[in-house]
Nucleic acid binder design. Structure first.
Lengths: 116, 116
DNA sequence: CGGTTCGTACGATACCCATCGTAGTACGGC
DNA sequence: GCCGTACTACGATGGGTATCGTACGAACCG
């Protein structure tokens, strides 16, 4: 055991601690924006491994941490998997329309640049 | 002559070259977000020196350049002053609601944190 | 022309951060 | 108990960037 805190709980910022600059910074990265788009499209919790990114797993872990610590997503362990979900209610309460307009902007830009 | 191009013209990205990640990155910085809020509130062109930031002039120049190159603001010389204006039309055309929701979010957060 | 004001250019510095590789921990199944 | 899977932790590395100071260029005003 030694370390063995095995806290199996993940620290999330409270709703009122979510900062706009942090959210914008989190969404400004193409990788993270892609994750958020996938989560919004799925509309249910997805495990980290279901969200395939063109980077190594360590980097993926890093991006999920940034998203969680900025308050954009919530994460919870389910067995060995870590499930990810958007914090839609919190974000909509704090910054109405923001998430939707960013998602719409991302979709529109994807269409414009070649529907990828 | 040597250097002396004195182009007095500033390079701006065309509307279709404005990228969402670039805009989000530009807005994610507190200094730059503050500038954008002031420009939106003024609703007219402001000179660089009217927008006082708690940093040196060189740093201010840097932030204005980031905002211009990301497509958030337009700049034009008028005599010795350089006037700054939001590219509202371009941004609204590309990313409807985005600018407004970010501005509203910034206002809301400012109120929540102590109306500064 | 000389001075003043406004903004730029350039170099330096220090920090942040996206990425990787490797080694390790947690959980479930055999 | 042992192995495989899922994710993490840590250190290294390279590039980006926010900041400063100083020196410069451009325009207006006497």
């Amino acid at each position: 055991m030694a370390t063995a805190p095995s806290t199996r709980e993940l620290a999330h910022p409270a709703r009122e601690d979510i900062r706009l600059e942090g959210v914008l910074h989190a969404l400004a990265d193409p990788m993270r924006l892609s994750v958020v788009r996938d989560l919004a499209a799925a509309d249910e919790e997805l495990s980290c491994s279901q969200l395939v990114l063109p980077v190594t797993k360590s980097t993926t872990t890093h991006h999920f941490r940034v998203l969680r610590e900025s308050g954009v997503i919530q994460q919870v362990y389910r067995g060995t998997a870590k499930m990810n979900g958007l914090r839609r209610e919190d974000l909509d309460a704090l910054f109405p329309e923001l998430l939707d307009s960013v998602l719409a902007a991302a979709s529109g830009q994807a269409d414009r640049l070649g529907g990828s």
